[in-house]
Design a protein around this nucleic acid. Structure first.
Lengths: 349, 349
DNA sequence: CTGAAAGCGCTTACAG
DNA sequence: CTGAAAGCGCTTACAG
């Protein structure tokens, strides 16, 4: 008996599979210690653990008696409550489908880092790959995945992207810049922005790009920035109310996403402000229904479906077995000018 | 060490798993002989083989280190392009989550019956259950599932519900009735409805309920029914254009879903018709964003999230192993009166 | 924190 | 055709 094993469906393999014993030998430790590392048990010194993890990684270790990975791509969302999520799902699904994979969805219910119950369950499913959308796996969770050869991609990462995790995002800073330029070139001088939660890097990038555009246009005053508001309609309403109550209110508002922009619509409506005559509004995302809002919303289009597809490709691409290279894919963004923006002070009909 | 095993993720189980050794004991043979039978190797007398196979069957033997059926609920959609789908996903996800199950999504891209490639892949995944949303599995597909003990539930069934498949839906006929009553009690006499594709039973039920309300109110003429229109904004625009071009246009339009209602908004806007002053509109679904449309849409609320949750419960409930009983769950529907409806001919401000 | 020892479920090679 | 023995990959319990 050579390459064949037991306790497992023997699959024809060119080379002998690497075993726990192999790893132990290379790491100069015993098999039980390696076993502990693989299963995330405690009782292993940090440096030993790190050394072993590295060797596991290099060797491409996989349990010999493990069932083959399930043909599933897992997506983790913080919340599943906006078309935003569905657009991403569609992109992932289209690519997964073409490769005979299903798509599994879980929601962390607002938690930035999914719980450990989640990862345990996921590990049992042995998916082909994982896409974390606006979520951050803990270091332990990341190594649990890599130990088992399950690749991870971050979509629209919320914080410092981990060094070795590929990520996909949009050109957020550029989007903010486009919004700012559009408004200043229309002649607006008193700009404001409703910002999103600070922990999202994407929101900060949008804000910085917007401020940069105002700066480049030589505006006398920088844009007024609202305190961070939730990325929902309600968040937009509250922030817009505050902004529009100022002694000299802005003539144009850029929002961190489309939902907030709809909130600005509602707040403006209540005050009898007409859009775009009295107030210009620019959103971010270009969700399918905003072209049907009244008036149709000018917004920065983020290619959510393409982003989902790109993430899926990164996961599926290396079907040869090579782990995905640590890369960052940044997809372009575009201004979609519709009817919610116009030159300022255009009163009358 | 007793029920614990190795070479496998040990899962807490109430009862000890049956092993090859157990079977050997019961069959009065050695473990290697049982092993040969299981793996289809030669060198076992026919009667021995038959006896062992019988015991394996009875004992429900499963390799201890084999992966258990995957803890996944599969949802099949025809299209994944509306918040409608996401609401259902959320409902399923919440229940699945509580039971440690993931949710997998596939899209048939407009096909009423998913392809056979889909079911082959699904069978390999061994999901815990399947929810078909507005789709119909072929008889063969249904029996492929039932053979493997994978339960199926139909959500919002499009046609004749199969006799033995449980289904979940909304009180569509009643919803149509509510819409009609609301409009007639407001004083409307010239009603119209934009209908959905005929193959959807839900759309026909909505229409029939609406017509029944008009009838009950003693209207001189039955509602004008548009030809079947796609359940999207564009479908609503085209159908509304036709309806509003009539010599004596309707004063109120009921649509087969919210997206179509937004299409009516767009068509009305183009003609300079104000809602609700010149035209009342009632939608169906109550998608989250329609309360932010301008004016906020009066609509029939369909509890999509609850429907998803109900479907998941039917699948998960019989965790004892009994198949779900053939039932139909019909969830109630409610009128959500907002600002898109008013008495007719209320011209002036 | 570490690993020798024992054990598990399963399979192979081979003697009868 | 059958099974005792040896072996595999992995894990657990526990002594140091």
């Amino acid at each position: 008996m050579t390459a064949e094993n037991n306790g497992a469906r023997s699959e024809a393999r060119g080379r002998r599979d690497v075993t726990v014993a192999d790893i132990a030998r290379r790491a100069g430790v015993s098999a039980p210690t390696v076993s502990k590392v693989i299963n995330g048990h405690s009782g292993v010194a940090l440096d030993t653990r790190v050394r072993i993890e590295k060797i596991i990684e290099e060797s491409g270790y996989r349990r010999i008696d493990a069932s083959p990975p399930i043909a599933i791509l897992e997506i983790v969302f913080q919340a599943l409550d906006s078309l935003w999520a569905l657009e991403i799902i569609r992109g992932v699904e289209a690519v997964a489908r073409d490769h005979g994979l299903a798509v599994a969805i879980t929601e962390t219910r607002g938690r930035l880092t999914p719980g450990n119950a989640w990862i345990e369950q996921l590990l049992q499913r042995r998916p082909t790959g994982v896409i974390a959308v606006s979520s951050e796996l803990s270091g332990r969770q990341q190594s649990q995945l890599s130990t088992r050869g399950i690749p991870l991609v971050t979509l629209d990462p919320t914080g410092e992207p981990a060094h070795d995790t590929p990520s996909v995002g949009a050109a957020n800073w550029n989007g903010g810049l486009l919004a700012g330029r559009h408004l200043t070139s229309l002649g607006h001088r008193r700009l404001a922005m409703i910002t999103g939660p600070d922990r999202y890097l994407c929101c900060r990038a949008r804000r910085d790009g917007f401020v940069a555009a105002a700066d480049a246009a030589g505006l006398p005053e920088p844009p007024v920035l609202s305190p961070a508001a939730p990325l929902y309609v309600e968040g937009g309403i509250a922030a817009a109310d505050a902004l529009l109550s100022a002694p000299t209110p802005p003539t144009a508002i850029f929002t961190a996403n489309d939902l907030q922009a709809l909130g600005v619509y509602a707040a403006a409506q209540r005050r009898g402000l007409r859009i775009p005559d009295d107030l210009s509004v620019v959103g971010f995302d270009d969700l399918p229904f905003v072209r049907w809002s009244n008036p149709p919303l000018t917004t920065i289009r983020q290619p959510l479906t393409d982003m989902g597809a790109a993430a899926a490709h990164i996961l599926i691409g290396p079907s040869t077995g090579t782990p995905p290279s640590p890369i960052r894919v940044e997809l372009p963004v575009a201004l979609v000018a519709r009817a919610s923006t116009a030159p300022p002070h255009r009163h009358g009909q």
